[in-house]
Design a protein around this nucleic acid. Structure first.
Lengths: 197, 197, 197, 197
DNA sequence: AATGAATGAGCCTTCATTCAT
DNA sequence: CATGAATGAAGGCTCATTCAT
């Protein structure tokens, strides 16, 4: 009969190992690209052999899926609270852009990995989880009169695309000042969402 | 030793053949994803065998590179004249967005292929040809007083990212009205570039 | 150094555990085929992990060997007494066929497993234990004049092969009436062994 | 434009290569067992590498299937005409046994391979092609009064099983006199099918 | 006595590439 | 010019086995 603590410990060890491989996968993908991220390379980075990864993950697909979930969770955990703390829709927009870029500054590899995985998705039907948070506060802002009348979807897509663009820039030039970049984007989308043409 | 005429003749036929394979590659990549675009599949789509491709292209990398060049050239040939016809910087911005989305509407596969290739570039150092046309007219607009004072690079990156976002939307929902989408983007970036904060 | 009692106790438990794994192996082989009968699957059926099997059996080969020995012993324990109870050679033949098919009816999985293992034996030289019981009573029957003059080996081989054939039939059609089948075989071999050429 | 002859020549070459690999597969399976017959081993026997086999056969399964088809065809081509030449049902029985054992004498490896493949069939539903030739002449013999009244299926199964038994014997003792063995089987089944109980 | 973790060999397959014809 | 054939490396994955705990 196993005690609670030993059970959780076992689970803990297992999860730590999985997290280790997920991290290695992120690094390899960010560094060499998705196509070059073979199990062999990922295992080598972790200092073991392919078999070990297969032991902890049913599939390569499961590993990649876990990578994405991990990144999503990390971002949500960082950005979510900051947006929740914001009051008005305008503040939410500001907070969204700033916290995303701040997260980007600290987790460049993860976001780069995500960017490299997503355009070549496995054939698993479901087309990436749709995050409707942005649409939501955009609509709120329109209803409260803070924002002008625009197509919410187009604006949301463009806001997220702007962050992807920032990532690309940051990858190409690591010395980029992301704080300044964030300020620029805030001004840009402040103009874009407000005012009367 | 080959005569001039036979050489140019061969070159012509040769180029036609190359273009054929480039087109097939585009279709396969757009349809099945970059990772699944093996030479075998591309050859099958062209109705020949792998060997033929290797005969016309030194490398798979050369083929892919040619695919990108082809797409770039196609877009430049479409967008360039339309922007040249525009007068003011504001008109150039409008024209850039509209012509890009119009091209997208007609060449979905090509842009989709491009989007799938780019995030996983071959190790050939050179980081995609930088197209400075957007920066240029943005700077012009600032100098002429049409545009407010913003970071030109950030704005240019965001404008191009917005087009990528449109592509993703269009891929996900082929019924999307790209003309309306263009109008939305024009309004969005008109606000973003003009006005006094 | 272990005491006698603890040793014998361990041996008893140990043997029970071994038998459990042997039974699971039989089921898995009968159900999924020999090639698919990995230690992992057998362990899963037993509700434990691969390591445990390796703990109780030196080898996978030892496990498989034990499976065969188990099945042989089971059949011998069933068929042996029944043949011993038979008087004449003719009765022994009848009893052999009937008791084998009766055993088959009750232990289909075991015989199916045996049939799947045997044609792909491990490289351990020894070619399955030769059971000379059939030859024996055939020879007796010839000496007593009950049977005609035939090659004892050929007849014995054919009798056993006939049982394999019955197994195959039974596997293909589980609704098969094995009692009737036994009666047919008895008649068949009664004619085959007796009579005047 | 390809001439007929060159086309057939190409097909011929291809088929010759396939046959070569099929033969190698037969030898390896007969020699080392089905489980040990990896593509690597088969390729090594053919003096090439695994890739070549994959070039000529879509699958390992296709190779194995071809092995079986090859063997079936070989046997049918040998046994068929000989049985057709036989007149009465009794002669057909005799001819069937003799020609099968004669074929066995000349193609031991093939039949051994078949015996090793069949009990571990791939999951492809269809349960080996049923050869009803034996049932047929048995029924004919009963209708013509040559044979007694027995269960045709049981008799047919047993006849074929007897041949399997002969194969096993022959594999275990290659010096076995198969002509004599055939004579014994003929006598055995002559008694078994005729006479009044 | 038992187990989770790790290992490394081997499997089948796919692929880009080369070459003789 | 084009092709079928061949090659060999690499890919993902399964497996029997071992070992520390």
């Amino acid at each position: 009969m196993r005690s609670e603590s030993s059970t959780s410990d076992r689970t803990f060890t297992e999860q730590a190992r999985r997290r280790q491989f997920v991290d290695c996968a992120v690094e390899v993908i960010a560094e060499h690209g998705f196509a070059q991220a073979s199990l062999a390379r990922i295992a080598a980075r972790a200092g073991t052999s392919k078999g070990v990864i297969s032991y902890h993950f049913r599939d390569k697909d499961e590993l990649i899926e876990q990578v994405l979930l991990d990144i999503y969770a990390g971002m949500a955990g960082f950005v979510g609270p900051r947006m929740a703390a914001a009051g008005s829709a305008a503040e939410k927009l500001e907070s969204f852009l700033e916290s995303n870029l701040e997260y980007l500054a600290r987790h460049r590899s993860q976001l780069l990995a995500m960017r490299r995985i997503c355009p070549n998705p496995p054939e698993t039907g479901e087309p990436a989880p749709h995050d409707s948070a942005v649409e939501e506060f955009l609509r709120d802002g329109q209803e409260s009169g803070e924002f002008r009348d625009f197509d919410v979807t187009v604006m949301a897509v463009t806001i997220r695309a702007a962050l992807d663009g920032a990532l690309d820039q940051f990858v190409a030039r690591p010395e980029l000042d992301l704080t300044a970049y964030a300020a620029e984007l805030v001004t840009l989308f402040t103009h874009a969402t407000r005012g009367n043409p």
